[in-house]
Computed example of a mutant assay.
Amino acid sequence: MKTASAVVTLTNPVSVLEALRTHLAEHELVVEFDGQVASANLPSGHATMRIEASMLELEVRAASESGLEDVASFLASHVLEFAHPETPVIRWSGFQPSGTFADFREMKVVGVTELTPHMRRITLAGTDLRRFATDENLHVRLFFPAPGQPPVWPTRGEDGLERHIEPARQPAVRKYTIRRIDLVTGTVDIDFLLHRDPGTGSDWAKNAKEGDMIGMAGPGGRGAQPADWLLLVGDETALPAIARILEGLAPGTEGMALIEVESEADKLPLTHPRGFEIRWLHRAACAEGLAAAVSRIRVPTHRKHFCWAGAEFETIQTIRRYWKEECGVAKWNQLAVPYWRRGRPEGE
């Protein structure tokens, strides 16, 4: 178990701790408190907060360096928020004074493959990628260098937070799915949807060539939970995630994947269990939207089931309501995530 600690001088540590406790409780995290010491288990590790005179003593514990960083940055950012307008100094012991975040990797483009008229696969090479090889978390954050600028990557300061980067050199960050990872060769495949409209990730992928550098951090973003019957729903933006989920299913899994693409040319070969049905919706030939198609699928809730969806924001809202109100799918048996929002630039 890794540990780090910090002593923060505050005018009113009691009010800051109370705000922290309230915030944690609002996110359904159990906080134990004896009047002086508060402790809580966070998703990435454990946090202890102790009141001492005009100070707040912070201690974090986690199984990994990245987990330690997650908890430390969470506490630091919220102490600064709740202490405002006071600006206390936070210095963690247990970390190097500054450095690259444990979950960050610099990656190099080593391959470019055209998959469909609107999908391009970029193969990236890096080191120490084992943390990314998990089916529990499918997504990564990609850091795109500012146009015309050499890459500048995020680094951690003494307070555990990301150091400031001047706006002109600040990399843009977008979330993408790891389509495939090979620990032997140290490579990952990321499939990019090539949009007609300008977009950070799409524009980068259109011009990517071998030798280009990009940053990668993570992983994050849940996949589908194991089930006897599974429903996967999405448009092109979710196609890489659906393809990866299908490949990882147990042989006897049954269910359906409903995928909306522009036309026949945008279909991809998918590997899936024999009992799985794949349905493609061609936007160019069918006026019916994805949500309407989902509304005709009855979920067999008498079986161990799970429903997963990734698509446009309003479509996802409609699908969520249908699964909950019409099918009776419990919230722990579904995951519906907006991958984009109509009228907003890619990734915003």
Rank of each mutant, 00 (worst) to 15 (best):
M1K: 07
L10W: 05
P13Y: 09
V14T: 13
E18F: 03
L24W: 10
A25T: 13
E26V: 00
H27L: 00
L29Y: 06
V31L: 14
V31R: 04
D34V: 12
V37Q: 06
A40G: 00
A40R: 08
L42A: 05
S44E: 08
A47L: 10
I51W: 03
I51E: 05
M55L: 11
L56Q: 02
E59Q: 01
A63V: 12
S64H: 02
E65T: 08
G67H: 10
L68R: 09
V71N: 00
A72Q: 02
S73D: 01
F74W: 14
F74M: 03
V79M: 05
F82M: 04
A83Y: 03
P85H: 04
P85F: 03
I90S: 06
W92S: 07
G94F: 00
A102S: 12
D103K: 08
E106L: 10
E106V: 15
G111I: 04
V112L: 03
E114V: 11
L115M: 14
H118S: 12
M119Q: 07
R121T: 06
T127V: 15
L129S: 01
T134V: 15
R141L: 05
F144A: 06
P145H: 02
P145Y: 02
P151I: 00
R156D: 07
G157S: 01
G160P: 02
G160T: 08
R163V: 15
P167F: 01
R169V: 01
R169M: 07
P171C: 10
R174E: 02
K175D: 07
T177H: 09
R180G: 09
I181D: 03
L183Y: 04
V188C: 11
D189W: 01
L194A: 06
G199T: 05
K209D: 04
G211I: 06
G211W: 04
R222S: 08
G223W: 06
A224K: 15
P226A: 07
A227C: 11
A227E: 13
D235I: 05
P240I: 05
P240D: 11
L258K: 01
V261P: 10
V261D: 02
R274F: 12
E277I: 14
L281F: 09
R283G: 07
R283A: 10
L290I: 02
A293V: 12
R298V: 14
V299K: 06
T301N: 15
T301Y: 14
H305A: 00
F313T: 04
E314F: 09
I316Q: 04
T318V: 10
Y322C: 03
W332N: 13
N333A: 13
Q334S: 15
Q334H: 12
Q334V: 12
Q334L: 07
R341E: 11
E346D: 10
E346M: 09
G347H: 10
